[in-house]
């Protein structure tokens, strides 16, 4: 069976003043219909760029898909026409962004912004679209949706705005929903509500979700499978249980060791010493080598491949050589 979304060897480069840098380096991922894939990794490791590639929204210039393939339902997206991509965006694949405060247009009512999404993909009149928008606001748990639909974004709280974003994203019942750190900007209590809402939406609408997050607790709760990214590469991928219980890559171990207690659900990512190297300084070896306690000469000179060894696939020489 082929997956709903298949990303294969995706390369994305950016032109910067340091020359062309590789933001995504042979990223491969797949998402099955109806499941949730968690994508984790430190800031700047390419999670958002991966998501934007799927949506065809890489800012270009300076960005560019330099190679690889993205297939949604078997349809190749990297070569799709702009018109076809517009038809897909919002209808078959939708996205929720990190910043609910700035992701809605300040000069239009939230109802109008949802209705617009509906009218872009369905042949319905303005009135009918507005009624559908109100129904969606109701569905995402916004009280007195009729009145709220006439509100402007600045009149709503962050949590409410993120609900509006979700309503907009699911308005055309997409099969693929990408949520890029949907709760990072919100209060902890609101975060839990948004995750609950995403779960419900997934159950009702049968959408597959890619959940990009720093929150390992959310991964434990929501994700079926997990992909761990580091410096533009996927370095470990398996079921959520496997990754959480038996992390392989030293970076993944670091991430998981930092979690105080997953069961309590208040897990937050703590820091691993060191920082992700800037893209233009990436060398020939493993990007994590400088921060890794297990690095040897080979790690500094040769990029490890994502290969199954032992428990599940991880891109690490030390794991593959059985040193850890």
């Amino acid at each position: 069976m082929s997956a709903l979304l298949e990303i294969e060897d995706l390369n994305v480069t950016f032109n910067t003043r340091y020359g062309a840098v590789t933001a995504l380096d042979s990223v491969s991922l797949h998402v099955n219909a109806g499941e949730t894939l968690g994508v984790v990794g430190e800031s700047g490791c390419g999670k958002s760029i991966t998501a934007l590639s799927v949506m065809g929204l890489i800012p270009s210039p300076p960005g560019r898909i330099a190679g690889g393939s993205i297939r949604l339902n078997g349809e190749e997206l990297t070569t799709a026409s702009p018109a076809r991509m517009r038809a897909i965006r919002g209808a078959e694949a939708a996205m929720i962004f990190q910043e609910p405060m700035t992701s809605l247009n300040p000069v239009f009512t939230v109802g109008a912004q949802i209705a617009e999404a509906i009218m872009l993909h369905q042949k319905v009149g303005a009135d009918q679209a507005m009624r559908a928008a109100v129904a969606l606001l109701d569905r995402v748990g916004i009280p007195s949706p009729d009145a709220r639909a006439r509100d402007y974004p600045h009149q709503l709280s962050g949590g409410m705005r993120q609900r509006v974003m979700i309503a907009m994203a699911v308005s055309c019942r997409p099969k693929m929903l990408i949520a890029d750190e949907p709760t990072t900007a919100l209060d902890v209590t609101v975060q839990a509500q948004i995750f609950d809402l995403l779960n419900e939406i997934q159950r009702d609408f049968g959408a597959a979700i890619v959940l990009i997050t720093h929150d390992m607790g959310a991964i434990a709760e929501m994700a079926d499978r997990v992909a761990v990214m580091y410096a533009g590469r996927v370095i470990e991928g398996a079921t959520a249980d496997d990754v959480l219980d038996h992390p392989q890559h030293p970076y993944a171990r670091g991430l998981i060791d930092c979690i105080p207690n997953i069961a309590k659900g208040d897990a937050a990512l703590r820091e691993i010493p060191g920082v992700v190297p800037p893209l233009h300084l990436l060398g020939a070896g493993c990007a994590f080598a400088a921060r890794c306690a297990h690095a040897n000469n080979r790690c500094h000179t040769e990029k490890p491949k994502l290969a199954a060894h032992g428990h599940h696939p991880a891109a690490c020489h030390a794991v593959q050589e059985g040193r850890i």
Binding site: M55, L57, P59, R86, A87, I88, R89, G90, A91, A94, M95, F97, E99, T102, S103, L104, N105, P106, V107, E116, A117, L120, H121, M165, M168
Partner: peptide
């Protein structure tokens, strides 16, 4: 054009004219 809500407009499949003259211009 670099702001988040323009990206949102594109993400819902708005046409380039609509992005430019409806979403961006008014702001």
């Amino acid at each position: 054009l670099g702001s988040d809500y323009i990206r949102t407009a594109r993400a819902k499949g708005a046409t380039e004219q609509s992005v430019l003259f409806k979403h961006a211009l008014r702001n």
